[in-house]
Measured scan of single mutants.
Amino acid sequence: AEKTGIVNVSSSLNVREGASTSSKVIGSLSGNTKVTIVGEEGAFYKIEYKGSHGYVAKEYIKDIKDE
C-alpha cells in the first residue's frame, strides 16, 4: 500500500540513511518534489530514493495520498 506525498520545505529536505536525525544524510530533495512512501518509522517516512530507500522527517511531507 504505497502512498505519495509532496516535500513541503522552502529550500531542501535531507534524505537520511535511517529513521533518525543522527543518521547519515545520503541526499536531499527540493520543495514540491513528489515522493513515494513505502513505510514509516517513528517520526520518519521511508521513501523510494535513487533506486533504493531513504528516510525523511514526516513533518516536512504534505498531501499524503494513497496510490
Results as ranks from 00 to 15, higher is better:
V35K: 00
S52M: 14
S52K: 07
Y60G: 15
E2F: 06
I37R: 01
K24R: 11
I26D: 00
I47S: 00
R16S: 10
I61M: 06
G51Y: 07
I26W: 03
S10C: 06
S22K: 11
N8E: 09
G27K: 01
G31T: 10
G39W: 04
I47W: 00
N14M: 07
V15P: 00
G27T: 03
A57L: 13
A19H: 06
L13F: 02
D63I: 15
V7K: 01
I6P: 01
K3I: 11
V35W: 01
V56Y: 00
G39P: 00
Y60T: 04
L29M: 04
E48F: 13
G42I: 03
K50Q: 13
R16V: 08
V15L: 04
I47Q: 00
S22D: 11
V56Q: 00
T4R: 03
D63M: 15
Y45L: 08
S23M: 07
Y55Q: 00
V7P: 02
S28T: 13
G39Y: 04
D63V: 14
I61E: 01
V25C: 05
S23C: 05
E17G: 10
N32Y: 08
T4H: 13
K50V: 07
V15F: 02
K3F: 11
S28D: 15
N14G: 14
A43H: 13
T21D: 13
V15Q: 00
K62M: 10
V56K: 00
L29K: 01
S12R: 12
E67D: 14
G5P: 02
I37D: 00
R16Y: 11
Y55K: 00
V25R: 05
Y55F: 11
V7E: 02
K50T: 06
S28P: 04
E67S: 14
L29T: 02
V25Y: 05
V15R: 00
I26H: 02
K58H: 03
S20P: 02
N14W: 13
V25Q: 05
K24C: 05
G5L: 02
I6M: 09
I61C: 02
K3G: 06
A43Q: 14
S23D: 05
T4Y: 12
G39C: 04
L29Y: 02
S12Y: 14
D63A: 07
V15W: 02
G18S: 12
E2Q: 15
S10N: 10
G42M: 05
I61W: 02
S11T: 10
E17I: 11
E48C: 04
E41W: 08
A57F: 14
Y55L: 01
N32S: 06
S12G: 09
K46C: 06
V9H: 10
N32F: 09
K46G: 02
S22E: 08
G42P: 03
A1M: 09
K24T: 11
G42D: 15
E17F: 08
S28Y: 08
S12I: 15
E41Q: 10
S22G: 12
A1G: 08
N14V: 15
G54M: 02
Y49G: 01
E41P: 02
K34D: 04
L29G: 00
I47G: 00
Y55I: 00
G31C: 05
S10H: 08
E59A: 10
I37A: 01
K50L: 10
H53W: 15
H53S: 08
A19Q: 04
I64R: 04
K46M: 13
S12W: 14
F44Q: 02
G54Q: 02
G42F: 15
A19D: 02
K65Q: 14
V15K: 00
I37F: 01
A1E: 07
G27D: 03
K34I: 10
Y45H: 03
T36N: 13
V35G: 00
Y45K: 01
D63E: 14
T33P: 03
A43C: 05
I6N: 03
N14L: 08
T33D: 09
S30F: 09
L29F: 04
K58A: 05
A57H: 11
S10Y: 09
D63Q: 07
Y45E: 00
E48W: 09
H53R: 05
T4C: 04
E40G: 06
K3W: 15
T21C: 05
V56P: 00
Y55P: 00
T4I: 08
S28M: 14
V9R: 03
N32L: 12
I6K: 05
G27A: 05
D66F: 08
E2V: 15
V7F: 02
E17Y: 08
E59H: 15
G51P: 09
S30M: 09
L13V: 11
S11I: 12
N14C: 06
N8H: 11
S30T: 12
N32E: 11
E67G: 12
D66V: 12
S22Q: 14
G5V: 03
I64E: 12
E59I: 14
K62V: 10
K46D: 02
